[in-house]
Design a protein around this nucleic acid. Structure first.
Length: 695
DNA sequence: GAGCACTGC
């Protein structure tokens, strides 16, 4: 059994994306009827209210204000209202507040509309992909995802309609937040009247302030006293979370699944009621832990019989995910074993105990091989605090860390590596180019990506004929591709389909490729899933198989029953329809002609080749193990067993992506004729023609 | 015959 001790008194700051929304709803339900508290009273009770005047003063006098706010401080819902009350939305101007996630945008916007007593979509509105609930003439406070605001910059690079832009959850450091921060800093120089509010966690506040501290004086303002101060202001607002007591393992834990089982069992046996949330890395570990714990609880006789053990990860069906939100019956204790999804994206009420493995799966990008890997790695201190905070939402809680305090203090980094420094930058570079940022290598980022990754992205875009010899966007190809909100290789495939007469089919393929999976994750029902797949399987490969599934879905009248019968994920298919519809509109806007090639799958395969020529592979001549080598760099790769071409092993294939485990597996594969490579990308393959491509 | 942290446009 794992042993813990308590080091002094640590009170983890509680960061949360919902920003007190749940506290509101709790007080509403408890006060319904006799103890009614007016919305105005509720607003005044929030910690942020005490800082109203200071915040307005700082925003008035500083170009950038950094707000450090903890859970339930109310900053997200209140600050935009304070700004509006102070006149920042007068004269047709708009106050913007960005969020990293769609759900948060919707939740916060509807709460603010309710508080202001206005109809959502009028004075208060929101915009997320596929959904614009704003009114050009009426909306004064607008919530949106940071990705949407970036897209808006393509129409209006200086974001002229906004008087104040609040970037919320900036400490999460997503790629779009970082690009946005870099661009907003540039806009500030051109628009001294614009005000920025950056909401951030404690650790990040100083580096954020340093980033926005503009040492260069603005032209025309030297010696003059007008205009806001360029040095950012920092203001801290306390939260409303409960105290969480933190315990560390005495010794390093050799097997964290086993440690989780014993820790959960001892909490269950010794601690008062309250649900347990366990953070693990991925599906495999979670399923193993759920099974072990369930067995343990059954063997352990009566004190443990009240455990309800549930897994939580994004690959679960919607129904299985919803189980973790259903209330437990009296005398039962819920144990949810989760990935990082419960760290920020989903909030579980009723959690009093958190068990933290100290690890998560993180993406790392290798610009040399151009491959992104998922690796189990230690989390940051910030992440550990965030996890602990999940125990203090309803009452004081406890957090059990399955690592030593020494490890926490000495080994764990203060904050995680920003996504920007762990990713392929192709989409990011094209977006900046489209905004007229020519000197990509000299761009002022909150965290600079490696030059290798930048150069690799420029190379890929050059090979796609998106950038010319001077690294400028080509016309029309480069500009058209920048308009399409997808990976540039997919966008290039769409453009090619226009000439090949198969755009109707290719936008379907593009929509399917841009979501996780269209199949139901079928643990334990693998055989049935494989059989279902065979009903749609096409000899050409996975892309054509997707077209068959899509056709079947339409013929069924978009039926969820049909989906379940065929192991197709109904929610994924709804998303495919939405994305496809958006792509259709964009295609028409950029001047493409929508045309079906009917049953000419050669056209479809050629279009795929036009976008993904760099991912072409050849089967090794004497290989019976299905080994392929990439044409570009002679890397050893294999067709993933989930592909319809697994064991079919056509001589030439193109893959959509690589999953690396013990081998490099190609996911989503299509066969091709190698002569198409020269047709699609002569510049890329000419020099290889002599030795590798037959003609 | 094997494996997919999480967002977002």
């Amino acid at each position: 059994m794992a042993q813990f001790w308590k080091p002094g008194t640590e009170r983890p700051p509680l960061l949360d994306d919902e920003e007190g929304i749940l506290l509101y709803s709790a007080s509403r339900s408890s006060s319904s009827g006799y103890n009614h508290v007016s919305i105005e009273k509720q607003r005044q009770r929030l910690p942020v209210f005490r800082y109203r005047t200071s915040i307005l003063y700082l925003v008035e006098t500083h170009a950038t204000t950094i707000i450090v706010g903890e859970t339930g401080s109310g900053k997200t819902t209140q600050i935009p209202q304070y700004l509006k009350e102070a006149g920042w939305a007068d004269g047709g101007r708009v106050i913007a507040c960005t969020q990293p996630r769609r759900l948060a945008v919707q939740a916060v916007a509807s709460r603010v509309a309710e508080e202001m007593g206005v109809k959502l979509g009028e004075e208060v509105g929101y915009t997320i992909r596929f959904e614009d609930l704003t009114n050009r003439d009426l909306t004064r406070i607008k919530f949106l995802t940071d990705g949407v605001l970036l897209r808006e910059m393509m129409e209006d690079p200086l974001l002229t309609k906004y008087s104040v832009i609040m970037v919320d959850e900036a400490h999460e450091r997503s790629i779009s937040t970082d690009i946005l921060l870099g661009l907003l800093k540039k806009i500030q120089r051109r628009r001294p009247e614009l005000r920025l509010i950056i909401s951030s966690a404690t650790i990040e506040a100083k580096s954020m302030a340093a980033f926005f501290h503009n040492s260069k004086k603005r032209r025309g303002l030297e010696g003059e006293e007008r205009g806001p101060k360029t040095e950012p202001a920092i203001l801290s607002v306390e939260g409303r979370g409960f105290n969480v007591q933190v315990f560390y393992a005495e010794e390093p834990v050799p097997d964290y699944i086993q440690a989780i089982v014993s820790t959960v069992m001892s909490i269950h046996d010794q601690e008062p009621m309250g649900d347990i949330l366990v953070f693990l890395t991925g599906q495999d570990d979670i399923d193993a832990a759920v099974q072990l714990l369930t067995e343990e609880a059954q063997n352990n006789g009566k004190p443990s019989s009240g455990l309800v053990v549930l897994p939580l990860y994004s690959g679960l069906s919607r129904a299985d995910q919803d189980l973790v939100f259903s209330p437990t019956s009296r005398g039962k204790r819920k144990v949810v074993i989760s990935t990082n999804i419960a760290e920020t994206s989903l909030t579980l009420e009723g959690v009093v105990y958190v068990v933290d493995s100290g690890f998560s799966k993180q993406r790392f990008y290798n610009p040399i091989s151009d491959i992104e890997n998922l690796v189990v790695a230690p989390i940051s201190k910030a992440s550990a605090r965030q996890r602990a905070g999940r125990a203090g939402r309803v009452r004081p809680g406890k957090c059990y860390r399955l690592y030593t305090e020494e490890h926490f203090v000495k080994e764990m980094s203060a904050e995680g590596i920003p996504e920007m420094q762990r990713s392929n930058l192709v989409s990011c570079v094209i977006q900046l180019k489209a905004l007229g940022i020519d000197n990509i290598l000299g761009f002022d980022w909150p965290a600079s990506p490696s030059p290798e990754a930048m150069i690799r992205a420029l190379e890929v875009l050059y090979s796609l004929r998106v950038l010319d010899d001077d690294a400028k966007l080509t016309s029309p190809t480069g500009f058209q591709i920048a308009e399409i909100p997808l990976d540039p290789m997919i966008s290039k495939m769409i453009l090619a389909s226009n000439q090949l007469g198969c755009s109707e089919e290719i936008i379907t393929v593009a929509a399917v490729l841009s979501i996780q999976s269209i199949w139901i994750s079928a643990r334990g029902q693998q055989k049935q899933l494989d059989e279902a797949k065979l009903r749609f399987a096409a000899a050409e490969g996975d892309h054509v198989t997707f077209l068959n599934v899509y056709k079947g879905f339409l013929q069924s009248g978009k039926s969820s029953k049909w989906c379940n019968k065929n192991f197709v994920n109904y929610h994924a298919m709804r998303k495919v329809i939405e994305i496809r519809e958006q792509l259709r509109r964009i295609a028409l806007r950029i001047g493409l002609v929508l045309k079906s090639c009917e049953s000419d799958m050669q056209a479809v395969r050629k279009a795929v080749t036009a976008g993904f020529f760099a991912n072409a592979c050849r089967l090794e001549a004497f290989s019976h193990s299905g080994m392929y080598k990439t044409l570009r760099s002679s890397q050893e790769v294999y067709i993933h067993p989930s592909s319809v071409l697994f064991r079919v092993n056509p001589k030439w294939v193109i893959y959509h992506s690589i999953v690396s485990t013990d081998r490099q597996y190609m996911r989503n594969v299509i066969s091709l004729d190698p002569s198409w490579l020269l047709e699609a990308a002569p510049h890329f393959y000419q020099h290889q023609q002599a030795n590798s491509i037959p003609h």
